[in-house]
Amino acid sequence: MLLDVNHLSVEFQESQGSIKAVRNISFSVDKGETLVILGESGCGKSVSMQAIMGLFHDQANINIKGSVKLHGHELLTLNEQKRHQIRGKQISMIFQDPMSSLNPTMKIGDQIAEVLITHKAYAKQEAWQEAILLLEKTRISDAHLRVNQYPFELSGGMLQRVMIAMSIACKPDILIADEPTTALDVSVQEQILDLLKTLQAEEAMSLILITHDFGVACQMADQVAVMYAGKIIEYGALDSVFYDTGHPYTKKLKASIPRLDHPQGKPLTVIEGSPPDLFNPPKGCAFTARCDFAMRICNKKHPQAYTLNSEKTSDSTHGSPSHCADCWIHDDDCPKPIKTAYRKIK
């Protein structure tokens, strides 16, 4: 397994208490695979990725527990120098807002070349040549002109291409894309996703894509992990998560995808209520308050992860994890009528 994340927890110490942003999540990514992490804002998806990148390391008020292994080597306990060597070279990351994610007073070329100079000891001249090639790879127009421009002179879509060029400069094993299309025009979103897919194939890298858009997940994912209130509540291959959804939250997410055949005049589906307070996460399932199938037990105890289709897949040798979901509905003791009612809804 390329990347192995086990029991990762992230807590922010604030003056009013600690925010449990990520609560004991585990997942893994294999070579060349795409994992999509799906969830609404504030569910801890970005935080977990930044923790994996070690971006919180110099912040004293952030507690990180668990383990992150790349090629079997622990990342969380690396010393600073080693961490710098891995970031940008073996794992790289692109962010939500390309406009603010690039240094406003530095030329595009310099910002890309910097990665090559740091990790591959390129000379400046070489690095600039390479930067142009990298930009061409991202299908940007007039790459040789772009290198001499500043971020404010480019559009959001172009800047996200620059970010991508920068992140693939050292041919990383894993690219983490944190909502790479959220801040962009809809027309550009599609192009960026296409580009990511193509590059992933060309460079044979793994991709972790963070999104709140089930549509994007369907388009990109091999595996899907659905996060809610700091926990992964459903995890599995795209097909089984989509067609054989194991968690009421995932069902609601799916139902809220706008569809072309949506009846006119009928309001779009929304998930009522708001996510729980992460200062004080509930003892039981965090979704209880918003769940149509909530049972007494749900409020008391967090469900274990139930494997849903162990008979079908779970061939551990190929590395694709079995489909599992954290919901009491899958418990053997759960009354039949509830299970049936759950299966009936879309």
Partner: peptide, 24 residues
């Protein structure tokens, strides 16, 4: 955000300070 990007690129703290923070 661009400091986060610089960190994600694998630049050392000294590099980030000299090339990204100081000028801005």
């Amino acid at each position: 955000d661009y400091i986060r990007t610089a960190k994600a690129k694998g630049l050392s703290n000294a590099q980030i300070f000299a090339k990204h923070k100081l000028r801005n």
